[in-house]
Nucleic acid binder design. Sequence first.
DNA 1: GTTGTTCGAACGAACGTTCGCTCGATAATC
DNA 2: GATTATCGAGCGAACGTTCGTTCGAACAAC
Lengths: 225, 225
Amino acid sequence: MISNKPERVFESIEADHDTRRSTDSRESFDDRLNHILEAATGVIARVGYERASMRAVAKAAGVSLAGMYHYFDSKERMLFLIQFRTFNALLNNLKEKLQGVGEPVEQLRVMIRSHLGYFAANMAALKVCSHELDSLTGGAYDETRRVRLDYYNVCRSIVDRVLDAHARGRTIDRHVATMSMFGMLNWLYRWYDPKRGRAPTAIANQFADQFLYGLLGKREAEDAT
Amino acid sequence: MISNKPERVFESIEADHDTRRSTDSRESFDDRLNHILEAATGVIARVGYERASMRAVAKAAGVSLAGMYHYFDSKERMLFLIQFRTFNALLNNLKEKLQGVGEPVEQLRVMIRSHLGYFAANMAALKVCSHELDSLTGGAYDETRRVRLDYYNVCRSIVDRVLDAHARGRTIDRHVATMSMFGMLNWLYRWYDPKRGRAPTAIANQFADQFLYGLLGKREAEDAT
DNA sequence: GTTGTTCGAACGAACGTTCGCTCGATAATC
DNA sequence: GATTATCGAGCGAACGTTCGTTCGAACAAC
């Protein structure tokens, strides 16, 4: 089932075991794959996964229909590659941005800023990830779920730390609180237009304020900055 | 395009112009239509609109494939009927619950409670409405959009009144705030399991608290109850 | 006998995928 | 250095299946 190794793609600077002599063809393979996946991401974001026919994706990528199957063995695998890479990039981006930030409240602000920043910079990919979560099945679904769970755990532990440090006797279900934050953030793909709306950083700040005040119930969140 | 009048269906106690004599066959037609739409809602909620074949819906409803087309002239019209009725019911439910409530903060609480209550009671229908927003095209899409805009305006004006009454010098984009609330609420269909999670009313209360404190930045929301 | 319901059977179109082939570039052989 | 073998990359054409929809006959009710 997992014949097309996904790790190869984003572990680009990893220890290479066997393929490094014929560098030329290898690099051009990955470049070509990336190009096709980007085209696919655009089409799927526009019309949805089921409506996005392989013919339409092939046309958008400038490849023949049959030629696509040199890069993945099925349409579902194509969607998996898009989602798996995006979720991993999102997670790595978050971990990187959190480095050196210790204060829980500031961690939460960084997290929301990071999520929204990546969102705004990769709208199509994150629309596909938010909307087509259940379009994968079996092992492919499980693998993306694993990454999403990692992401959830990082965010959840930040929410926990914020509440532990500044709890004010309110009874808050922390899972519900975390999911409400994801809802606030991910729903963006339904309404946000980067050409018309406010800048992503402005929205991120407002979201962070709203969510923090919502958690803490008072203004004290500010003295952390 | 709009051959199958949708208003007839939920304006059930409206002034009837022409059809009230042959009550028997008329009622059984509506009942049968309702039954098919409910089955369709379940199938679409489970596998998505595109994957939900008319054959699968027909089997779930206990009707032959051809027999479905006696109640709507296309698959898209079937989806339209589901969405249009659900959105209208949601809107009417909200207006009803708001009657007699004057205080803005309490209005907002009622709104969140109402939305979540309807959500919990009609999970499948609201999943279809949240997830398949863009599956309609042309006039059908416009009609559902109109109802959704009505719903937005009611909620937005409540947010406006809350902020006007309790503004504390914070700069808040009210559209962004309203959409963040819809995100928090509608994202529910992605994670909430009525059999495992907390009761809908408990979640509604926490959502209301979070969103209100988030808007106002302090605890004063409570003295409205 | 008309009208409203229901259905089996079939339609053309579109889908994801596969097959057999071609084309260049590289590797191997002499 | 010329010739041959090997292989990845790409494509046109077709496969079998499933899709939404239609048609005409059958049956019921009044």
